[in-house]
Structure formats: C-alpha cells, structure tokens
C-alpha cells in the first residue's frame, strides 16, 4: 500500500509533461530533485496546480505534503496562474529609498490591485521582487520581460497602459 506514490502516469497528453519527466529522470528520480523538478513545471506551465504537485510527488516518490511544503516555502513558486501581463516592482533597499512604494501605490490605484494580485479580467498581475540586482537603475520594474530603469509612477503606469492596450 503506497497511496502517496500512486500517480506515475502523466496527468494528460500535454507534451510539456515530457519535459518535466526528463528533469526528474536526469536526477535519477531521486527525492533531492524536487526543487529542480518544480522549477521545470513552473517554467513549462507558468504555475504549480494541484495536479502538478501530485504528479511530481509520484514521480519522485516523495509525500505530497513535502511537495506542498516546498512549493509554498519558496517565494519563487506560485500556485496561482498569473495574468496575461506581469509587472514586477523591485522593493530592494536601493529602489525602496528611491521611491518603490510610490510605484506600487500608483499601479495599485490605476488597476485596483494589491501586490500579489491579478486584475479581474486577468490582464495584469502586480508582484514585488526582493531585489532585481539592478540597483544602479533604481527604482526599477520589470514589465513582462523588459527591465525598466529609473521609472517614475507616471512613466510606469504609462508603459503598462501601452503594453496592456497593445493586445486589446
């Protein structure tokens, strides 16, 4: 009787599970590959849902509780899908003293969301980062994958408007 380890087959036909399996296999499906495997899931699917957590638990023969514990311990992993666009505001020390709180307030006011939330129409997620390491460009933000340096509340909101409107 091994209830935790039941699910060994891919949850669906989705090809992305093959990539996840490859990561697990590269590490000999050892329990220590847990974080590496979760990274691959998040990279492939964008977030970690219950199906993925259960599947990884079976794949590496690790209790689901431990998988859930690891997935929620580390800030990098997210259990919720992100919006179509993501705005990351750096709240590292250099950005903080150069006005990151004002950036968060401006974006929050315009879209009615707090850091960590996604707009109702799923268009924009607002998140914070501990430090992007772009302290020379403080305050910094990342819109999708573009790093924006020396931003002001007005320029940031304007850039987001442009990005979000682009695919409207």
């Amino acid at each position: 009787m091994q209830p935790f380890f039941e699910q060994q087959r891919s949850p669906s036909e989705d090809k992305r599970w093959k990539i996840v399996e490859a990561t697990a296999r590269r590490h000999g499906r050892e329990p220590h590959a847990l974080i590496e495997t979760l990274h691959t899931v998040q990279e492939s699917f964008g977030y970690l849902d219950e199906t993925a957590l259960g599947y990884v638990a079976g794949l590496l023969r690790v209790p689901l509780s431990r998988v859930y514990g690891v997935a929620t311990f580390y800030h990098f992993f997210t259990l919720k899908p992100k919006g179509k666009h993501t705005c990351v505001v750096c709240t590292g020390t250099a950005c903080y003293i150069k006005g990151a709180p004002a950036l968060l307030a401006a974006v929050g006011k315009r879209y009615g969301i707090q850091p960590g939330e996604t707009t109702g129409d799923n268009r924009l997620s607002l998140v914070t980062a501990r430090c992007l390491g772009s302290c020379g460009l403080a305050p910094a933000a990342v819109l999708d994958s573009a790093v924006l340096g020396k931003v002001t509340p007005a320029t940031l909101v304007e850039q987001i408007e442009r990005g979000v409107k682009h695919d409207a």
Partner: peptide, 25 residues
Amino acid sequence: IRLGAGAFVCGEETALLASIEGRRG
C-alpha cells in the same frame, strides 16, 4: 548547478544544504 527558489534564509549554510537536498530551507 542548483537553482534557488527565492528564500533569503538559504544564504545560511545549513539552510542552503537542506535546499540542495530538495527540502525546505
């Protein structure tokens, strides 16, 4: 290479070891 996953405490060496072993830091 082992990727961290955004936990400041993993800079502490025993937490870092736990993380490389695939556990919470």
